[in-house]
Amino acid sequence: MNIVKGYIVGIEFTDTISQIKLNTEIGDFYCVVLENPDTANYLKIDNTVNLIFKETDFVVCRDKIHPFNTFQGTVKSIFKGQLFTRVFIENKGLQFSALITNLEFDNLLIDIGSQIYFYIKPTNIILEV
């Protein structure tokens, strides 16, 4: 599980769903939740929340595939198992880990010290208040 602190900078919403723009140390993220500012009082501009990214929810890539929800990092360590690889990256002193299949990892052709991108879909970010 990866956690990064962020604050809300924008909210667009329907009667049940909100798209929230969050500013964090590692970049801007969009996240959608089944709430709106009337039903959840944490949905306020400038409110601080934790963004939780599950390790298996990242798309790990060598190039930036989206202008948002992507952050870059330097590969610090790699733990390879029989089927899965856990990749740790560092960005601005924060560590993040992704769990990808060996098939994905082998295709990336990366090693310790490589610069890579983590992308996460807006529907996969969990907010913790």
Partner: peptide, 23 residues
């Protein structure tokens, strides 16, 4: 409520832990 945005969340008790690969 108001602690986590996951609408699909439940409390439970860990019954078993198995190591499988690096998970």
């Amino acid at each position: 409520e108001k602690s986590i945005s996951g609408k699909f969340s439940f409390y439970g008790t860990v019954l078993d832990i198995r190591k499988s690969d690096i998970l």
